Structures are given as C-alpha cells and as structure tokens.
Amino acid sequence: MKNIQAFKPQQTQQFITGLLTTLILSLITLLSQASQADEFEKILVQASLHTETLTLNATIEAVNQGTVSAQTSGRITKLNYDVSDFVSGGSTLLEITDTNQAADILAAQADVAASEANNTDANLNLQRLKALYPQGAISKGQLDQAKANAQAALSRLQAAKAHLSQAQQAHSYTQVNAPFTGVVTERHVEIGETVMMGTPLYSGFSLDKLRALASIPQSYLGYITPDTQYDILLNNAQVISSRDAVLFSYADSASHGFKLRINFNNLFNSTLDKPAAQLRPGMWVKIRFAIGETEQIWLPRSAVTKHYQLNAVYLNTAQGWQLTQVRLGQTQGDQVQIISGLRNQDEVALNAQAVMSAQLKQNLASSQ
C-alpha cells in the first residue's frame, strides 16, 4: 500500500493564501472591467423597419442636343464660338457671306414695286370701265377682260411679295443663331471655308433639362410605379429627386434589361451653388429608388471602428467590452447600416475609438 504524503500546516496555509489572492485579483479585474464599461456611453441595438432601396448606375445626357447645319451657301466670314464655350439661346454662332442673298432681296424688292404699279394700273382701268359699261360705251367682253387683268396683276403682286419674303429668309440664314442655351461640343468648319446647304456647322447640348439613363433588371420591374421617386446620387451624396420617368416598353437584346429615363431640371442658370448644377452630360451617377421595407439595424458612425481592415464595434458583455466584427451596408448621413454581427437588444459603445484607446492604455499599464 502506497504512502499518501499529507500537506504540512505551513504548505496548507500557503496554498489557501495563494487561492484567496487569485480569487481577489479575479474579482478586482471583473470589477475593473465592469466599472470601465460604465465609463462609456452605450446604445441599445434596435432593429426597425427601414425602406429597402435599389441603387443602379446611370449616365447623364442632355434632353436638347443636336447639330446646326447651313441653310444657305456661302463662305464663312466669322466664327464667334469654339468648343466648350457657353452660348446663350439666339446668339450668333457664325456669319456667312451674303452677297448673293442681298442681291436676291434687291431683285425681289424691284419685282414687288413693279407688281404694285401694274396692280394699281389694272385696278384703275377696271374702275373706269365699270363706270362706262352702264352707258353702253364698252362691251361686256371688255369689262370681263379688265376684271381678269386686275386679278392677274394682284396674283403677280402676291407672288412678288412671297419671293421677297423668301429672299429675306435666305439672307437671315447667313447669320446662324443658337437654337437653345447650352455648350458647344464640336465645331465642324473653319473660317474662310465654303459651305453648302446641309453642311454641319456646330454641335452642342443644353444644360437646362437633363435626364439620367439607367438599365433596370427585369426582376425589379414590379417595383416601378408612376409615383416612384428616384434619387440621383453624385459621389454617394443625393443631388436631386424626380418622379418624371419613362420606362422603355422593350428590353435590350444584349443585357435583357429595360431602359429607364429619368428627367429633371438642372438649375444650371439660376442656382450655380446647388449640387444639381454639378451634373453634366456624359457623367456617371447612381440612381436609387425604394423596393420595399425590411427590418434593419442602423448605428452612428462613431460606434464603428476599423480593426486590421475589418469593421467592428465594442459589444458590452459580462466580461467587459468585447471587440465584435460587423458587416456594413449603406450609409446615410451619420448613420451606417449593420448587415450582420449584431442582434436586437445588444449593447454597444457609442464611441468605439474611446474604448479602444482605454483598452490600449490598460494593456500598456499591465505589461509594465
């Protein structure tokens, strides 16, 4: 039978003293962590109903855009604008020689004057013959001939005036004016160049009315209604909202998505300080619209911190603050969406950076 060595009284006392010391230190640590947790403001995680949105890429394009072409022939004598210049509606873009057009106006004016004289003479002759006919001085055929001559003279006068109006209109084409207020995107001609009718001169677009063009997957068509509000985002910040949208009635053969065109006023001319004035044709933007409601968790930005490239919050537990990884979703103002990592009724620190700093200081102090 083996001998069992008993503890000596001195060893037993040392063992009890060490055990009590360990328990006291553990209790002090727990109390320290509990008091530390009370030092920082906590917030209660509460899931609530939030609008779920769909965000898609879109391209800004101008509603009014096109190319101005020559409506007469001649040589360009003056170019008033170049590419990227801002042009007011009605401003003269360029001038074309008007020698032939001015000569046509003079000829038409002379023709009008001659026609007016012939018309006056024919009317006077008709009035004389009308006075002589009751007296039997002229025959019925002579009176009818006078009436026909007066009608023909009036027709020639009307034709001469129409030719004059046409000549004046052709002369006005020697000064090409901007059809709308906008920006020049391309100049197709050079000064001194001879142009013919139909020659492209300038291309441009208007900044007053713009639209965003996006492609909607067919699975989301059911969420689009005439009352749907679309938010246009630039650099993830809301710029403008609009309900004026047109959904194409056919799908793209390549992407099988449906084109969505969202119209809006750009406010470029009236309020340059507005964010919407930053929108320009050709820019990439994002559009966002609601597709339902779901329970979501949102926290202030201050409750989330970066830890080794991971997003995390400080969760309040019985053992103190515990760094807990979370996955983030959308951001709206000072709030950030928590997709996973937390449950309803959890308590987290409102200022994650303050808790992290306090824990670092505590770790440094305990290691010294």
Rank of each mutant, 00 (worst) to 15 (best):
D227K: 10
A290G: 03
N149I: 02
S255Q: 02
L360H: 13
S32M: 01
Y223Q: 14
I297H: 02
V68C: 04
T21E: 12
V68H: 06
A117R: 03
P217W: 11
F7I: 02
W298V: 11
R75K: 15
P226K: 09
Y173E: 03
A290D: 15
I60M: 09
A62S: 10
K8G: 10
A159G: 11
A117S: 08
N266P: 03
I76N: 09
D111W: 03
S366E: 07
N235K: 05
Q332D: 12
D85Y: 14
Y202E: 12
V63H: 08
K147V: 15
S115Y: 03
D346M: 08
Q309C: 03
A114C: 05
S249V: 08
D98L: 08
A6D: 12
A114T: 11
Q13D: 06
A237N: 14
A303N: 13
R128Q: 12
S32H: 13
A251Q: 01
R211M: 08
G89C: 02
G320D: 10
T99F: 05
N344E: 10
N269K: 08
A113K: 01
S270V: 13
L299S: 10
S219R: 06
H163F: 06
T51E: 13
L23K: 08
R187Q: 14
V68R: 11
E186S: 07
E116K: 11
L94N: 08
S367D: 07
K140M: 09
T99S: 10
T29I: 06
V355P: 00
E193N: 00
L106A: 15
T12I: 04
Q158M: 02
D273K: 09
L210A: 00
I105G: 05
Q335K: 07
T21L: 14
L79K: 11
A117E: 10
A276D: 12
I43A: 00
L129R: 05
Y133M: 10
T271D: 15
K8V: 02
L56V: 08
I28D: 07
Q175F: 00
F258R: 10
G329Y: 10
V326W: 00
S73I: 04
V313T: 03
Q14H: 12
Q337G: 04
G333S: 13
V183Q: 09
Q359V: 02
T294Q: 14
A150M: 05
T317D: 01
E41C: 01
L323E: 15
K161S: 00
A162I: 02
L234S: 02
G333L: 08
L360P: 01
